[in-house]
């Protein structure tokens, strides 16, 4: 047979590469940041503060609108994460802290992509005050 040792090494490396491609593609996000502290929430608060200053609506109505908007953001979060995961052909998305605990902390972090998608969807949208 015409196989040399170097041919066998090449085949071995090629198969190993292929095998790696079969492994799980894991993405990570900073869930706490996306759920609690990303700038979009502060932006919603600023919108609310401006509306309160304008005194066209009651403070309660403005506060309710801000809370509803934050709730909308949280509701949209899983879908945004799923869209990004599908686009990246990922198998699994987990929280960054969990990933660190299970030794997957080096996985690709898509927090900023998720944050950007949420900002694109919500940052320009005015608060909807119930009449």
């Amino acid at each position: 047979m015409g196989f040399s040792r170097s041919s066998a090494v090449v085949i071995a490396l090629a198969l190993c590469d292929g095998a790696d491609a079969e492994q799980l593609r894991i993405l990570i996000v900073d869930a706490a940041h996306l759920q609690e502290s990303m700038p979009l929430y502060a932006q919603i608060d600023r919108q609310a503060a401006a509306l309160k200053d304008a005194r066209e609506h009651t403070d309660g109505a403005v506060q309710l609108a801000a809370e509803l908007r934050k709730s909308e953001v949280l509701t949209a979060l899983p879908e945004i994460i799923a869209n990004i995961a599908i686009a990246a052909q990922a198998d699994l998305v987990i929280d960054r802290e969990l990933a660190r605990r299970i030794g997957e902390g080096g996985a690709q972090d898509v927090t900023s992509a998720v944050q950007q998608a949420l900002e694109e969807k919500f940052s320009e949208r005015p608060l909807e005050i119930a009449q």
């Binding site: 047979m1 196989f3 041919s7 066998a8 490396l13 095998a19 799980l24 894991i26 997957e104």
Partner: peptide
């Protein structure tokens, strides 16, 4: 090829196949 050469590359192929089958069938999570 001598039998020794043949054993060498078949050992490498075995490593490759182990590597492939192992990684493909074993998700890390």
């Amino acid at each position: 090829r001598s039998g020794r050469d043949s054993r060498k590359w078949s050992r490498w192929l075995s490593v490759a196949l182990l590597c492939a089958s192992g990684a493909a069938a074993q998700p890390q999570v």
